[in-house]
Amino acid sequence: MNMVHAKERELRALMIRGLDGDSAAHRALLSALSGHLRAYYRNKLVRAGRGAEEAEDLVQEALMAIHTRRGTYDPAELLTPWVYAIARYKLIDHLRRSRSSQSNVPIEDALDVMAADDQAATESSLDLTKLLTRLPEKNRLAIRYVKIDGLSVVEAAARCGISESAVKINVHRGLKALSAAIAQDKRNEHG
């Protein structure tokens, strides 16, 4: 238990620094969370009688949700229950979309999500380049310049000929649209 509490303190500190605009802390947070999420999803999917390979899709969906919705984290609260709620929500959504009878995921101790760690990443079935082509051009370009090519917001704004705040908005909306596109795909896939 102590290890889990130490983990909570460490990850929460990273989250708070990330919310403040610290890219390195945010990267460290997402890397650490990806291991916990992977272990959590593999365990749950196997229990629901599903293949563990679906886990990587879910890990990535959860990471995108954590990133695009991080404004909903209240820094006065613990981080683990917030992450757990998102992880569980995405799991239920996934099971429901794929018409599994097992969409009733019991609420467990939120600390469960931090209990195990699995760093053995695999490829997900998501294709970022293909997904990006479906976004509106202004959002696609903003994500490409700022998030993939690593240009600063100032440089990207100059290249697109728009204001810096417009670039930020385009990136944010683009990432949200990307999350939505992934969810939409899955719904269609499973009819």
Partner: peptide, 13 residues
């Protein structure tokens, strides 16, 4: 993770 953690913006919670 690379994409998400490049040029991270400050967020108002």
């Amino acid at each position: 993770i690379d994409v998400l953690s490049t040029n991270v913006e400050r967020v108002d919670t």
